[in-house]
């Protein structure tokens, strides 16, 4: 728990600066946000048969990339089908926004019903193909005391990281110093991998996202 207090201590420092930093980026993401919602609206307007087809067709799990978990296991995102998923993108050596983002995901998890806590998966995908090896991610998991079956940290190839980020609406750019500028986003996927809810920015209230996950569990 002590480790988890560290990111919390960053919050006060980081929020004031990082939120300002990321404001323009998040503003740019609105077009995608909107199109996500429009897709969702379309999906609701169809008859039930079509809806099933479309929900699959607009699933994030259409991205058929291979990933390696912090436990060294190979997987595709489609392996996550069947339960709601909370997904975010971070990088391990990030000391500013990322611990806050992980802590935000943890806050969301804490707000869930007991049943949801049992089922939901929290998937953290690294931007950093070169430094965030599965081993480095395992160290990160240990450092932040996230070592439960609910958490999965993923290492992938650059092209696939770009695909997933783009699908989720996360903008990022590798800087010359090897760090990343990125938008801070937590996404809730339904059991089929369709984007159901997005939390933009750091330190946001999690009530609504928690309600969404709880509802998805009951479906």
């Amino acid at each position: 728990m002590n480790n988890l207090l560290k990111p919390a201590a960053y919050v006060a420092l980081v929020l004031s600066s990082a939120l300002l930093v990321l404001a323009p980026t998040l503003a740019q993401d609105h077009s995608q946000h909107k199109s996500g919602h429009e897709n969702h609206a379309n999906h609701k307007n169809h008859t039930s048969m079509d809806a099933a087809k479309i929900s699959h067709s607009s699933s994030v799990y259409q991205v058929d990339a291979h990933w390696i978990t912090h436990k060294g296991e190979h997987m595709t995102l489609a392996d996550l089908q069947g339960q709601p998923v909370i997904v975010s993108m971070i990088y391990g050596s990030c000391t500013t926004a990322c611990p806050v983002l992980v802590n935000d995901a943890k806050r969301l998890y804490s707000s869930l019903s007991d049943e949801a806590k049992k089922q939901v998966k929290l998937v953290m995908v690294s931007f950093d193909n070169s430094r965030d090896t599965p081993k480095a991610l395992a160290d990160y998991v240990k450092q932040y005391n996230l070592n439960s079956d609910s958490w999965v940290f993923l290492h992938g190839e650059d092209q696939d990281i770009r695909t997933l980020a783009t699908v989720l609406g996360v903008r990022y750019r590798k800087r010359p110093d090897g760090d990343f500028d990125h938008s801070n986003l937590i996404t809730v996927l339904d059991k089929n991998g369709v984007i159901e809810h997005r939390v933009e920015g750091l330190g946001q209230p999690m009530d609504k996202a928690a309600k969404v996950v709880d509802t998805l569990i009951q479906q």
Partner: peptide, 12 residues
């Protein structure tokens, strides 16, 4: 997709 920031030191 442009990401117009300069790290943590950014003008809005």
């Amino acid at each position: 997709q442009l990401l117009l920031t300069n790290g943590d030191d950014v003008d809005l």
